[in-house]
Amino acid sequence: MVTTDLAAPKAAAPQTRRRTHRAERLLAVAFLAPTVIGMALFVLLPIVASLLLAFFRWDIITSPEFVGFDNFVDIGADPTVRVAFINTILFVVIAVTLQLAVALGLAVLLETKMPRLLASFFRSAFFFPLILSAASVSLVASYLFNQDFGLVNVILGWVGLPNVPWLTSSAGAVTVVIAVYVWQNFGFSFLLFVGGLANVPREVYEAASMDGASGWHRFTRVTLPMISPTILVASVMAIISALQIFDQPYVLTRGGPGDSTRTAVMVIFQSAFRELEFGKASAIGIVLTLIIIGATYAQFRLSRRFVFYQ
């Protein structure tokens, strides 16, 4: 009897714990299920479908036909796709460099030289373009840079400069696409840098000043190392975003003149929604994804040498 009486509460405790544990697990499942199901249906499934589609020829009307690696061979042999990837990489190098340089320069300027009220105004003003639709911005830019009637050429004419074929020459078109992209996107990097600069301890600057460091030296020897983790994050995000550029060249130039502003995502769109080659479009998408993963991995590897964590 005694044994039984004593044993009962001992047996009940683990059972209660198990029940509680199971209830917690059920609760977790209930809360996670909508997100997991949503992700599986709308993210994972399309990714898997896209991976599979790359090995098929499919025009959405007739049944898919298995073609093995033919789509990858096709895109390797397609000069337009090659040019689009080269353009994209060149664009990333130039646009991201400019974007980070402008954003960092303005962030430093605002944090060090600007009165607080004015700095607050510019912080909002620089972020503002980011909330606009890229297509709308590009449409306005296409009017501004119109060779015959655009405001930019009108202003150039006032100061005696010749009419520039902004959107109809290769150099002009690339310049405009980069300028519009950087103008619209530097605000995000700028905000990251403002946050990074706010975290640099004032004492470090004071110590550097007492040691006789000039403004330039404080920037290169204190600011840059101290915000290097922010620079890493900003550059990773800027590169991933720039590799996917589509709206600006599509609206401004449709990839022209020739192929001079054609980008990787543009050829994905062209293949899928104009030429109905969904297999080829998926194959290009996979190559672009691999490039993005490779670039991000390389950045994190390099960061071990250049990024300073406090």
Partner: peptide, 17 residues
């Protein structure tokens, strides 16, 4: 038509300018 139009548009501007 879609591929032909792309080929035409892509080259015309480059040649004429």
């Amino acid at each position: 038509q879609a591929a032909v139009e792309t080929a035409l548009i892509k080259n015309v501007v480059g040649i004429l300018t």
